[in-house]
């Protein structure tokens, strides 16, 4: 799947404030797209609008594959997201969380996929521990495993390495480069190293 994301004239109001106005961007397949801007510029909100979690005040977002507009159900299968305000279930173990989301998403060959992803993010040894016992960095690693579970075409990352140590950050950069080969990454960051990885940059003022 080569999914293109087209945002047309997006505006978001939080009355009496307008967060951003008239944002029109296209995220091409096989690209890394960075969204930068000062705190409060609306980076997180823009990512949530693209993910369909927050409605825009004006404008539209379309996902297309070879000219065909994707349905809501297809979009859900297309997106994987990691963000600080998303959380997994503390009462369940890392493995149980991934098994639950794999089942609810209808992922085929989930067991192998989960084992591979846990290995990728370095949580194989702690897979049976409740998420409540994980550090914030480990929780973020698990979020990456969750986001990649259904092999999404669009990976949406808000502050991709905010809670991670340098080893964790390297894993994330690897994930982003790997993702570019079969899809694209939209990420919000103010980290110069991460901005430098981007193929296209949107600066929100």
């Amino acid at each position: 799947m080569a999914v293109r994301v087209v945002c047309h004239d997006l505006t978001k109001h939080f009355p009496p404030r307008t967060l951003f106005r008239g944002v029109s961007v296209t995220v091409e397949p096989h690209s890394l797209f960075a969204v930068t801007g000062r705190n409060g510029a609306g980076k997180t909100t823009l990512l949530k609008i693209i993910a369909g979690l927050v409605p825009s005040s004006c404008g539209s977002v379309h996902f297309s594959d070879g000219g065909r507009i994707l349905s809501l159900g297809e979009i859900r299968q297309t997106i994987g997201m990691v963000a600080p305000d998303l959380a997994l279930y503390d009462a369940l173990s890392g493995l149980e969380n991934l098994a639950f989301f794999a089942e609810v998403r209808g992922v085929a060959a989930a067991r192998e996929q989960i084992a591979e992803l846990l290995e990728l993010v370095g949580l194989t040894k702690r897979r049976h521990d409740p998420v409540a016992t994980y550090s914030s960095g480990m929780k973020q690693r698990l979020q990456y495993a969750h986001a990649l579970l259904h092999t999404p075409s669009i990976l949406i990352l808000d502050e991709p390495t905010s809670n991670l140590d340098s080893a964790g950050a390297q894993v994330v950069y690897g994930i982003m480069q790997r993702q570019r080969q079969h899809g694209s990454v939209v990420y919000a960051t103010n980290d110069a190293r991460e901005v430098a990885l981007a193929d296209a940059i949107l600066q929100l003022d």
Partner: peptide, 16 residues
Amino acid sequence: ETGTALVLRLATDSAA
């Protein structure tokens, strides 16, 4: 409250 609502909404249909 726990922040899992958005993840759940990303994963499956509201009706489910």
